[in-house]
Simulated assay, not measured.
Amino acid sequence: MEYLSIRQTADKWDISKRRIQVLCADNRIHGAIKIDSSWAIPADAVKPKDERVKSGKYMKNI
């Protein structure tokens, strides 16, 4: 299996390197493995859906 670095994946998916690190830490990228202090991401990994709140309005269910 071929793996990509965080930088290569960030360029491929057009998002920041830090966002890739967060996705890996949250186990949102299937097959990503941590080697020492860096991540290896499978070349065929699918970009996860962005589930962050973008509207600026955060509503709590009370």
Results as ranks from 00 to 15, higher is better:
residue 32 A to I: 00
residue 48 P to A: 02
residue 34 K to T: 04
residue 21 Q to C: 13
residue 11 D to A: 06
residue 37 S to K: 10
residue 59 M to S: 14
residue 1 M to V: 00
residue 17 K to P: 01
residue 8 Q to K: 12
residue 49 K to T: 04
residue 58 Y to E: 15
residue 5 S to H: 06
residue 5 S to N: 06
residue 12 K to C: 02
residue 28 R to Q: 12
residue 38 S to N: 09
residue 54 K to S: 15
residue 25 A to W: 09
residue 37 S to F: 11
residue 36 D to P: 08
residue 50 D to N: 11
residue 54 K to I: 14
residue 30 H to V: 01
residue 37 S to L: 10
residue 3 Y to H: 01
residue 31 G to Q: 05
residue 49 K to A: 04
residue 52 R to L: 14
residue 47 K to W: 04
residue 1 M to C: 01
residue 33 I to R: 04
residue 40 A to W: 14
residue 22 V to S: 11
residue 52 R to S: 15
residue 28 R to E: 10
residue 36 D to V: 08
residue 55 S to K: 06
residue 8 Q to H: 07
residue 23 L to S: 07
residue 43 A to N: 12
residue 18 R to E: 04
residue 7 R to A: 05
residue 29 I to Q: 08
residue 23 L to G: 06
residue 62 I to R: 15
residue 47 K to R: 10
residue 18 R to S: 05
residue 51 E to C: 14
residue 52 R to E: 15
residue 61 N to D: 12
residue 49 K to C: 09
residue 15 I to H: 00
residue 8 Q to I: 05
residue 23 L to Y: 12
residue 10 A to E: 00
residue 50 D to G: 04
residue 6 I to R: 07
residue 59 M to R: 14
residue 61 N to L: 12
residue 62 I to K: 15
residue 8 Q to W: 07
residue 21 Q to R: 13
residue 13 W to V: 00
residue 29 I to H: 07
residue 21 Q to M: 10
residue 31 G to M: 05
residue 57 K to G: 01
residue 37 S to Y: 11
residue 23 L to R: 08
residue 43 A to R: 15
residue 32 A to R: 03
residue 53 V to P: 15
residue 60 K to M: 14
residue 31 G to C: 01
residue 56 G to Q: 09
residue 23 L to T: 02
residue 37 S to C: 12
residue 44 D to I: 00
